[in-house]
Design a binder for these strands. Structure first.
Lengths: 171, 171
DNA sequence: TTGGTCATGTAATTCGTTACATGATTGA
DNA sequence: TCAATCATGTAACGAATTACATGACCAA
């Protein structure tokens, strides 16, 4: 249940409405924790009910601005320092690799070269994103850079792996 | 819904009972697609209902042996060749990185060094697994080796990244 | 005045986890 | 005979996805 913590994390930077948070998920967080509009509004209601956030302002069109409470900040810190990131990592891409013998070697190689292309595209996308951001020296920029660097290294690794793997499959 | 395809994939190698499949999930597939006993029996019933697999033998203790049907094989191949692996990849570990400014630099560095250790341990575990397996030249071994190589490279990459990231965080 | 964006919610369904529940077979 | 393993299932709940539903505000 990390959506909860993702929302607390975003609200720890500044107060925001559900709509604001939705936009920020679409941009910065979409790559690590996708969430739908539906899920977010539901979770925000629950968080408000349990006192981890509270409505501190109301705007036009029924806009509700949420602010992190002291309990919410404590919960966020607890999550960051005391709990193990043990998310079981389902991997659709790798799962298919196990069953490549159900198709022809040509098809299998084609699957792997597609993965190479995908990795290159994602790498390029991240590189462009990095260029477009005006990085400062502040803590938020540092974290963003660290996360982005992960993406770059990950895609480079995956590209090399897919190239190597293609070579392993023979007629 | 890839559990469905994981089961079809395993059954494409040879017929098996729910219990057999459960064991094979625990060993080979646990790292890429964890599933519970409960989920598997439910999914097997659904697959049988939809005609993708069928019960071809009954054993002691109510054991049911399932075999892949022609429709099932077709569905497996369709999944492998026609559908894009677009699984949105939730990443618990990276999500936390975004919020490291909510804790002290010391705590943040501690989180990242833990990640280094974790990657080293997983790398070592996979290396031992590779040693323990009697690899042949058959297609199944090739696929297993490819998947394993991914794990090794991934953990090496993550270790280096975490080391680099630790260094980025200053007082 | 009208189209785009802001803004929030509910309902239905599926997927995944945890817990509960039962019982047959086999080998030491 | 008894413990371990084999073997299958259901129930309750939570998390995630898709679709539905509504309406206010603002700028051109």
């Amino acid at each position: 249940m990390s959506l909860r913590h993702a929302l607390l994390g975003l609200l720890s930077e500044r107060p925001a409405s559900g709509y604001d948070l939705l936009k920020r998920f679409e941009t910065s967080l979409a790559n690590v924790w996708p969430a739908t509009q539906s899920q977010m509004y539901t979770e925000l209601s629950k968080l408000a009910d349990s006192g981890l956030i509270s409505v501190t302002a109301q705007g036009p069109r029924g806009r509700k601005e949420y602010t992190l409470t002291d309990e919410g900040l404590a919960e966020l810190r607890h999550w960051l320092t005391e709990t193990k990131p043990q998310r079981n990592t389902r991997n659709d891409i790798l799962l298919r690799v196990f069953f490549l013998n159900a198709i022809t070697p040509d098809q299998a190689r084609s699957y792997l070269t597609e993965l190479m292309k995908l990795s290159e595209q994602e790498h390029e996308g991240l590189r462009r994103l990095a260029d477009s951001i005006d990085w400062g020296d502040d803590p938020l920029s540092v974290n963003g850079k660290i996360a982005l660097e992960y993406g770059l290294r990950f895609n480079a690794m995956r590209r090399e792996w897919a190239a190597w793997a293609t070579d392993q499959i023979r007629q």
